[in-house]
Amino acid sequence: MGKKTRNRATRSEGSEGGNPRRPCPCGSGKRYKACHGAGDDVIVVRPFEGLAAEPDLVAMREFLPSATAALPLREGGPVTLASVLPGASAALVRDSGEILLGMQVQTRSGDLSADLAGALAWARSAEPGSSLPVVGPERRTGERLQDVLEPEVPLEPSVHADFAWWLPGGEPDPEAAAMLERANSVIMPTEAVAAPGVRGAYWVDTGSKGHIRWVRTEDEVTLMAALARLSGRGELELGEGSHYAGSFRAHGLLVPVWDVDREMHSSEWAGPAAEFAKRLDEVLAGLDSEPLTDAEHRAREVLAGKQITLR
C-alpha cells in the first residue's frame, strides 16, 4: 500500500472509515468510497460533541425541514442558524446585516463543526447582500463550533410550517415566489415534542405515517442496552397508538424512531414522551449495577437489527 493511500485509510475517526464498502462514518448513509473516502479530510464522527445544543444541531442537519434558532455565541452579534437556506447556501448576510448559517448544505468536509465556524467567520466580514454557496478548505479557520458557542446553552429551534422566513418583508418577485412554492411543496409537517426532560424529540407526518424521531446523546452501546431492558419489560412504546420502529445513526448519535397515530396531535405525545424519558433515565442509572439478562441480550440483538433509513 502506498503512503498516501495508507494515510487516507487511517486518518478517519472510527473503525468503519477505512473500508470503502462500509457505510461512511459521517452518517450520510452512503458508502465510504462514494462519500468521504474520496477525500483526505479527517472524519469527525461526532462533530457536535460536548455542546448542550448537540441533539438539536443533529436534528436541524438531518430531518427538520424548516427551522431556525438563535446561536448561543460566546461573543459577537446575533446569528441565526437555519435548517436550510435558499440554494442550500452555507451562509448569507441579508441587506439588513442579519447573519444566517445553513445546516443542510452540500459538503464533503469531514467536520461539520469546523465548516459552520468557517461560515460564521466569513459572514462576519462579508458585505450585506452576500451569500456563501459552500465552505471550502480556504474558509476554515481552525475553529469549531465548540470554540465559539456557549457549551452549556442548548438551542431552542423554532419549527416553521413553510419557508416564508426566507424572504422577510414585502412581496417576493415571481422568481422568488416560484422558489418558495417549490420549497414549501416538499415540507412534511413537523413539530417539536415539548415536555420536561425531553430534548431533541420531533413529531413528523410523512403523509402515510406519523413518526417521533428522538435524538439521544447517550453512548450507543449503553442506550441500546437500556432500550433492550425496556423492551423486555414491555415499556418500549411511548403509549397507546405508538410502536417502536427502529433507529438510525446520525453524526455519532443514535436516533430511535416510533410510528405513531397520525390522528393524534403532536402535543398529545408530550406527556408519554416525558414518562418514557423518566423510565429510560431510571434504566440507564441501573445498568452498571444490574447487567443485562440473557433475555435482555437477545432483545438487544433484535433491536440492533431494526435499523431504518431516513427518507
Score class of each variant (00 low, 15 high):
Gly129Gln: 00
Leu132Val: 09
Leu132Arg: 05
Val134Gly: 02
Val134Phe: 10
Val134Asn: 07
Val135Ser: 08
Gly136Asn: 02
Pro137Gly: 11
Pro137Glu: 12
Glu138Tyr: 04
Glu138Val: 11
Arg139Thr: 12
Arg140Lys: 12
Arg140Cys: 08
Thr141Lys: 00
Glu143Thr: 09
Leu145Tyr: 08
Gln146Lys: 05
Asp147Glu: 02
Val148Ile: 13
Leu149Trp: 11
Leu149Ala: 00
Glu150Val: 13
Pro151Trp: 00
Glu152Gln: 13
Val153Asp: 06
Val153Ser: 05
Val153His: 07
Pro154Asn: 10
Pro154Val: 07
Pro157Leu: 03
Ser158Asp: 03
Val159Arg: 01
Ala161Glu: 15
Phe163Glu: 06
Ala164Lys: 06
Trp166Pro: 09
Trp166Leu: 05
Leu167Lys: 03
Pro168His: 07
Gly169Asp: 06
Gly170Leu: 01
Gly170Ser: 02
Gly170Gln: 00
Glu171Arg: 12
Glu171Ser: 13
Pro172Ala: 03
Pro172Phe: 03
Asp173His: 04
Pro174Thr: 05
Glu175Thr: 10
Glu175Ile: 10
Ala177Pro: 05
Ala178Asn: 09
Ala178His: 12
Ala178Tyr: 05
Ala178Trp: 10
Leu180Val: 11
Glu181Ile: 01
Glu181Cys: 06
Arg182Tyr: 11
Arg182Ala: 15
Ala183Ile: 04
Val186Glu: 12
Ile187Phe: 04
Ile187Leu: 10
Ile187His: 01
Ile187Glu: 07
Glu191Ile: 00
Ala192Pro: 05
Val193Lys: 06
Val193Asn: 03
Ala194Pro: 04
Ala195Arg: 00
Pro196Trp: 10
Pro196Gly: 07
Pro196Ile: 08
Pro196Arg: 10
Gly197Trp: 06
Ala201Ser: 11
Trp203Cys: 03
Asp205Met: 08
Thr206Tyr: 07
Ser208Gly: 12
Ser208Ile: 12
Lys209Gly: 04
Gly210Met: 05
His211Phe: 15
Ile212Val: 15
Arg213Cys: 13
Val215Lys: 03
Arg216Trp: 03
Glu218Lys: 04
Asp219Phe: 02
Asp219Asn: 15
Glu220Leu: 15
Val221Leu: 13
Thr222Trp: 08
Met224Lys: 13
Met224Phe: 15
Ala225Lys: 14
Ala226His: 09
Leu227Ile: 08
Leu227Asn: 05
Ala228Ser: 07
Ala228Thr: 05
Arg229Ile: 04
Leu230Arg: 05
Leu230Pro: 13
Ser231Trp: 09
Arg233Cys: 08
Arg233Lys: 15
Gly234Gln: 06
Glu237Lys: 04
Glu237Ser: 15
Glu240Gly: 10
Gly241Ser: 01
Gly241Ala: 01
Ser242Cys: 01
Phe248Lys: 03
Ala250His: 05
His251Met: 15
His251Pro: 04
Gly252His: 01
Gly252Asn: 01
Leu253Tyr: 02
Leu254Met: 14
Val255Met: 04
Val257Ile: 08
Trp258Tyr: 11
